[in-house]
């Protein structure tokens, strides 16, 4: 099939960008969207033009590296699917497709369609972990975890950190990402000791990174390739409220030393 692509081109973080149109011919419906871009890039290279920079790695929907706002929808029209898993059979011959990078203050464009998502890592640094060190863990079966809890934790833990939630949110909010991690650990006994502290710190970091707030539009949930539910956000808020009210200030005297 033949398509027209309207792609955001931007030479570098500080450069001005603009849309450029590319006619694309003879695309197979079996191709993935990224394979279609590969074809375009090979052609651009052969013509002596700069290929379109876009992030990708695993190409099987798990690493979270690929992105792309495709015709105004994060990861394109197919539900629960990353761009690398989106196939051209979702489009029709003659379509004109607009391709943009994720847009958010906290996700500056690096080049063309690549953005900097390190803000997510810093949110995790603020508390998205269990503070244990290697080698002092009790037996894996020492604490029984009810299956529903383990399953709920897994549902939230499925987040791949791609940033589609931010991209799709009219507010540019990272609430779903942050809430998914808080829910994952909050559902497990291992996550309890730091549960409220984690919520306080991760939310504070999320705000510092200049993400927007949550209006519960639901767009994040619809865009999420792992179908993470906005129920996690309710949980995050609950933990936050509880923490804000009851979490003890850290003792100035510190720990045992």
């Amino acid at each position: 099939m033949n398509l027209t692509l309207r792609v955001w081109r931007q030479a570098g973080p500080a450069a001005a960008g603009q849309f450029v149109e590319y006619p694309v011919r003879d695309i197979s419906t079996e191709m993935s969207f990224l394979e279609m871009l590969d074809v375009v890039n090979e052609q651009l290279t052969e013509q002596g033009d700069a290929p379109i920079a876009f992030d990708h790695d695993c190409r099987e929907g798990i690493c979270g590296m690929c992105s792309l706002m495709i015709d105004g929808v994060a990861h394109g029209p197919m539900q629960a699917t990353t761009t690398c898993q989106l196939h051209m059979r979702s489009f029709r011959d003659g379509d004109s497709i607009t391709v943009e990078p994720w847009r958010a203050q906290a996700f500056p464009v690096l080049r063309d369609l690549c953005v900097d998502r390190t803000a997510f890592d810093r949110i995790v640094q603020a508390g998205g972990f269990v503070s244990i060190t290697t080698g002092n863990a009790p037996d894996g079966n020492a604490i029984a975890i009810p299956k529903p809890d383990a399953d709920a934790a897994m549902d939230a833990a499925a987040c791949i950190g791609c940033g589609a939630c931010v991209a799709a949110c009219p507010n540019g909010s990272a609430s779903l990402f942050t809430a998914a991690k808080i829910s994952h650990l909050g559902h497990l006994p291992q996550g309890q000791p730091e549960r409220y502290r984690r919520a306080l710190r991760m939310v504070a970091q999320m705000d510092l990174e200049t993400f927007g707030g949550c209006t519960l539009f639901g767009e994040c949930q619809a865009a999420c390739p792992k179908e993470i539910s906005i129920d996690t956000i309710a949980r995050m808020n609950r933990d936050y409220i509880f923490g804000a009210a009851f979490e003890q200030e850290e003792s100035r005297a510190g720990g045992a030393g």
Partner: peptide
């Protein structure tokens, strides 16, 4: 053991 303690949600 280590992974369970970190909060890896293994199937149960």
């Amino acid at each position: 053991d280590q992974c369970v303690a970190q909060g890896v949600p293994f199937a149960r």
